[in-house]
Measured scan of single mutants.
Amino acid sequence: KEQQNAFYEILHLPNLTEEQRNGFIQSLKDDPSVSKEILAEAKKLNDAQA
């Protein structure tokens, strides 16, 4: 469930490039146990690119 939530949120971050988004999603698939950390990174990058 946590992985699904992170997946959904990353898909809807407006400021990520397609490449960045795909990278985060691939990381989620590779290691779902760190989905919280991956989501935090994605949000940080999204904010930095706002």
Rank of each mutant, 00 (worst) to 15 (best):
A40P: 02
L11Q: 13
Y8D: 15
N22R: 10
Q26T: 13
E19M: 09
S35V: 10
K44T: 04
N46S: 13
I10M: 03
Q3S: 13
E2P: 14
S33Y: 11
L28N: 01
D47C: 07
K36F: 14
A48Q: 12
S27M: 14
N15H: 13
D47G: 09
N5D: 14
E37Y: 06
S35Q: 09
Q4W: 12
A42L: 01
I38H: 02
L39E: 04
K44C: 05
A42W: 00
A48N: 10
A42P: 00
I10L: 06
A42T: 00
A40Q: 14
D31K: 13
E19I: 04
E2G: 09
P14G: 08
K43P: 00
V34A: 15
Q49N: 09
I25T: 06
H12W: 06
N15M: 07
D30G: 11
K43Q: 04
D31H: 15
L11I: 09
K44F: 10
Y8V: 12
I10R: 00
A50T: 15
I38W: 02
S27E: 08
F7W: 15
F24A: 03
S33M: 10
E2L: 09
K36S: 06
G23Q: 07
Q49S: 06
V34N: 11
I10Y: 01
Q3E: 15
P32D: 05
I38V: 15
S33L: 09
F7D: 08
D30M: 10
A40V: 10
A48R: 05
V34D: 11
R21S: 04
Q20A: 03
N5V: 05
R21I: 08
L11T: 11
Q20M: 03
E9I: 12
S33T: 14
L13W: 02
A48W: 05
P32W: 14
K1R: 05
F7R: 06
S35D: 15
L11D: 09
I25W: 03
P32I: 14
L13V: 01
E2V: 14
S27H: 11
Y8N: 12
S33Q: 15
K1G: 15
L13H: 04
V34C: 06
Q4R: 05
K44L: 15
D30H: 12
K44Y: 08
A48S: 15
A6M: 09
K44D: 06
L13I: 03
R21A: 05
L28G: 01
F7V: 13
N15L: 04
I10A: 01
E41R: 12
Q20F: 01
F7P: 03
L28V: 06
Q49V: 06
K1H: 15
Q26I: 08
F7Q: 09
L13F: 09
Q4L: 05
A6G: 09
L39Y: 06
P32Q: 06
K1A: 12
H12A: 13
V34R: 13
T17N: 13
A42V: 02
Q3L: 06
E19A: 11
I10D: 01
D30R: 07
R21K: 12
E2D: 11
A48H: 15
I10W: 01
Q20Y: 01
A6C: 06
A50I: 11
D47M: 11
S35W: 15
G23N: 14
E9T: 04
K29D: 06
L39W: 03
N5W: 04
N5H: 12
K43T: 06
K1V: 15
K36R: 15
E37C: 07
G23S: 11
Q4P: 10
E9G: 03
Q26A: 09
N5S: 11
D31L: 05
F24H: 01
D30F: 06
A6R: 04
I10Q: 02
R21E: 01
L13T: 01
D47E: 11
G23R: 09
E41G: 09
E18K: 09
E19N: 11
E19K: 10
H12Q: 14
A6I: 08
Y8L: 14
N46R: 02
I10G: 01
L45W: 06
Q4F: 11
Q26M: 15
S33G: 10
D47I: 13
K29A: 09
L39M: 09
A48C: 11
P32R: 06
K1W: 02
A50H: 10
T17Y: 04
P14D: 06
G23I: 15
E19W: 07
S27N: 13
E18D: 10
E18M: 12
P14M: 12
E9N: 02
Y8F: 11
Y8H: 05
P14H: 12
I25E: 02
Y8M: 14
F7S: 13
S35T: 14
Q49D: 04
P14W: 04
A50D: 12
N5F: 09
E9M: 05
A50R: 13
A50E: 13
I10H: 01
Q3I: 07
Q26C: 06
K29W: 13
L39P: 00
G23A: 13
D30I: 08
L13E: 01
L45S: 03
Q49E: 05
Q3P: 14
S33I: 09
D30K: 14
K36Y: 12
R21L: 05
L45P: 00
N5P: 03
Q3M: 08
A48K: 14
E18S: 11
N46M: 02
I10T: 02
Q26P: 00
I38R: 03
I10K: 01
K43Y: 08
N46E: 02
P32N: 03
F24Q: 00
D31Q: 10
L45I: 11
Q26E: 11
D47F: 09
L16P: 00
L16K: 00
E18Y: 06
L11V: 08
N15F: 12
I25H: 09
S27Y: 08
A6Y: 11
F7K: 04
D31C: 03
I10F: 02
I38A: 04
E41H: 09
R21H: 02
S35K: 11
K36G: 12
Q26R: 04
T17A: 03
N15W: 12
I10V: 11
L39C: 02
A42R: 00
S27K: 06
A6K: 05
A6S: 07
G23F: 12
Q3A: 07
L45Y: 04
S35F: 14
E37L: 15
F7H: 15
Q49M: 07
S33H: 10
E9R: 02
A50S: 13
Q3W: 13
G23W: 09
L45M: 07
A6L: 13
E18W: 09
K44E: 11
Q20E: 04
P32H: 10
L45R: 07
N22W: 10
N5I: 06
Q49K: 05
G23M: 12
V34M: 14
K1I: 06
G23T: 11
L13K: 01
L16E: 00
A6H: 14
A6V: 14
L45V: 13
P32C: 04
S35I: 12
H12D: 10
L28W: 05
E2M: 04
L45T: 10
N15E: 04
T17R: 04
E37K: 15
N46T: 01
L13S: 02
L45H: 03
E37I: 14
L39R: 04
K43H: 14
F7C: 08
S27G: 10
K36N: 12
T17H: 04
